[in-house]
Design a protein around this nucleic acid. Structure first.
Lengths: 337, 337
DNA sequence: CTGAAAGCGCTTACAG
DNA sequence: CTGAAAGCGCTTACAG
């Protein structure tokens, strides 16, 4: 059995109050007793029960994190940033993989709430009304990471998706490409779908490339297989295409694979630019040029914000927008030289 | 503020005992009161405080999981299996990323213990004496996943690494390869290092391929960059090599990238076989032939075992060995045709 | 400086 | 069928 504060008190021949004090305010305890108690703690391997503490303090020092799909490398970096920041603040993470499923999301939220987490980081997904209703009910500090909400006043940390997509297309255009396609998530996805499509089209328009969206856009989920099929459709319907902007690194790898398997040279015949700069982008051939999101930093920022919220401190800004950048590797051909 | 059992009791005009009963043994409560209480619960969005419950039951229904590096796709599948099994059993996971760091490992163990988790799944890494000492002290049910221990009597779920490595080499040999190299972790790693090297060498020996270990073995960690360099060294010191067994899919992708970047055709000039069958193995060109570990099932099994341990039920076997298999894709050339 | 007491939110014999 | 009481392991005024 685990030793409790009573066991320590008995062994050190003091009251439990005094034991409690040496754990929380050792300076209030006389030296000799303190030493005796410390020794008893040591001998019994005593470690305070966080449940009891949490009950009293109404604070558990565990932060809940909702992740749609941990098998996506995207979240690995984000989580590392969150973990580091959490540990620095004396907190722990409780990570829930929602498997992109609303009922899992809701039940995770419920369990977390019952376990009395102090706050929530909600990642990547749009905040649906149903979810927001639960957030309100939970009445817990919440911050959004790699997503945001315009409808609701929720703190968030993310990049400017529209601008990032604009920059990706612009990069391609400046390398001399004019017949450019995009593989993306659904238009109805307000986070990584719609804004990126917008940015992409704005860039084409800005540079006078009037392309038919019917022809240059293909849709699919972010997984490899889906994107592979999207690339197949694109290849069928957009002859002469020289570059594709894949909204996500895994999508980009699927494009590259499709090309290899169909004898199309990358980047000589088709250039590919990705999005996210996950670890994967260094593992393809050719290595992937991609838009980098500062995922580690975003994770940190999200936790920092949450911590401030929990401590009742004011936020300097509700919606934090971080900088993206382009990481040049070998998957884009420069047509201008 | 969150509603407590008192609030419900007051609103329904009963004692807290009765409220507690409708949560735990509703059949003991008269119909009319039960309905009134249920209504109050609904109105207040009451949800029991898991800390208080845990304190009484001495059980929190959260299981701790120690993962060396969540950015490794290997763990994604393992975690999914664990999560599904945990949810089925009414449990939750608390995942700790130890970043391959012993002090993080120890501190995670401490925090988990303070938060009163009911049991631990320890993944992948060898159980060092220092760690085992902590395990004993914690006095919690523990199961090892994707690792095992011969020194200590700890329950485990894993594959036969030695045999799997043997089979990988045998596969290559049967395809007509005779100049085979291996990229692996350190010989001093008793889990995925030593046994795999053993299996590899046993296979060579079995088929009469007497190769100099100095020449055909290269070492490095499981990350891409390290393995890329290992492949470079191998290429320099082992002329005529036609196949490499990479102990891990990420290592295999590094081999493939090295070859591409140095004008070596895969599999025409050099064949590559990987290990693990993570999602990554379908994303390379050529697609990777690899040894599959049943990661999802291993995750499930580990949790099932842990659950039995927690409930004081006997284990049918201490060390469970699961079956591996070879997944054939396109990275190995058949020299016999 | 130290201990007894109340209380965090719940559950579970016990008595009625 | 229901409520008062004790207790899970701790913390924190309060009194001395």
């Amino acid at each position: 059995m685990k030793a409790t504060i009573k066991d320590v008190a008995k062994l050190a021949d003091v009251s439990i109050s005094t034991v409690s004090r040496v754990m929380n305010n050792p300076e209030l305890v006389a030296r000799d007793k303190r030493d005796k108690i410390l020794e008893a703690i040591e001998r019994l391997h005593y470690t305070p029960n966080a449940l009891a503490r949490g009950l009293i303090h109404k604070r558990t020092r565990t932060l809940g994190v909702l992740i749609p799909d941990i098998s996506n490398l995207f979240y690995a970096e984000l989580i590392r940033g969150m973990e580091d920041a959490a540990h620095e603040g004396g907190n722990n993470l409780m990570i829930c993989n929602t498997v992109n499923d609303q009922s899992r999301r809701l039940s995770s939220l419920k369990v977390m709430s019952e376990k009395q987490i102090d706050g929530i980081v909600f990642t990547s997904e749009p905040v649906l009304p149903e979810c927001y209703a639960v957030f309100r009910q939970l009445n817990l500090p919440i911050v959004l990471a790699a997503t945001h909400s315009l409808e609701y006043d929720l703190p968030s940390v993310r990049i400017n998706e529209e601008q990032a997509a604009f920059d990706a297309a612009q990069y391609l255009i400046r390398k001399g490409h004019t017949r450019i396609a995009m593989i993306t998530g659904s238009m109805s996805d307000p986070i990584s779908g719609f804004p990126r499509i917008q940015g992409f089209l704005r860039s084409l328009h800005h540079y006078g490339l009037e392309l038919d969206p019917e022809r240059c856009l293909e849709y699919g989920n972010y997984r490899f297989e889906d994107s592979y099929e999207a690339m197949r459709r694109l290849h069928g319907k957009f002859p002469g295409m020289t570059a594709v902007f894949a909204s996500g690194d895994e999508r980009a790898l699927a494009c590259i694979s499709y090309c290899h398997e169909h004898g199309i040279k990358v980047p000589e015949e088709i250039s590919v630019i990705g999005f996210d700069n996950t670890r994967m982008s260094g593992m393809s051939y050719p290595r992937l040029t991609t838009i980098a999101q500062p995922l580690y930093q975003m994770g940190r920022e999200a936790i920092l914000k949450l911590d401030r919220l929990i401590n009742g401190e004011p936020l300097d800004q509700l919606r934090t927008c971080m900088d993206h950048r382009i990481v040049e590797r070998q998957s884009v051909l420069d047509l201008t030289v």
